[in-house]
Amino acid sequence: MDKIRTDALSERLLRSLAGRTSRRGMLARLGAALVAAPAFPLLPVSRAEAAKDRTAQGLTDFARHAQSKDDTNCDYWRYCAIDGSLCSCCGGGLHTCPPGTEPSPTSWVGTCINPDDGVAYLIAYRDCCGTAMCGQCGCDNTDRESQIYRPQANNDIYWCFGTASMEYHCSTAVLVGVAQ
């Protein structure tokens, strides 16, 4: 997949609108979503079952070529299901939002394998929201990426729910645990 094509970067990278959503209203809706669980699991535990086969035969194309040295490249191991601009290229880092932005309390998730230890980790892709789209280091990786009826596994949705502004800036890849 061409990860650096500028004109046809994913729809998430092309996000440029901003806005304000009612935090109270959002929490009420979050409650409604929790009622719908487990069909709508908000925690990334449901992905722990994925990718149990750690042999070369069990690794996806991304995992076979992933590296652990440079977090400004799309093939960095944690980015196996990321879509958007890497915050590491925008003044932030793997779990750090750039100045003037706010991390979303919600996220989509991936299960990615660290090539150094062969262990699968749960990664929460939290968007940093609130200022103009970064536009640097656009990636669109799709390991175990599902559609919007599995929203926690979909990387096309604007994941700026619950932030003061819904303007997308970049995406982080926060390590939240070991996949069992």
């Binding site: 994913s10 729809e11 998430r12 092309l14 996000r15 959503t21 209203g25 959002m26 809706r29 979050l30 409604a32 979503a33 009622v35 719908a36 709508f40 908000l42 919600t106 919007i148 929203p151 096309d156 949705i157 604007y158 729910f161």
Partner: peptide
């Protein structure tokens, strides 16, 4: 969300529009 067709639809008789919402329910 970008590039989705079925987040908006019109009924065959033209009487209703349907908009999909996720917030996040």
């Amino acid at each position: 969300v970008g590039n989705r067709r079925q987040t908006f639809e019109i009924s065959a008789d033209g009487r209703h529009a349907f908009i999909y919402n996720m917030d996040p329910a």
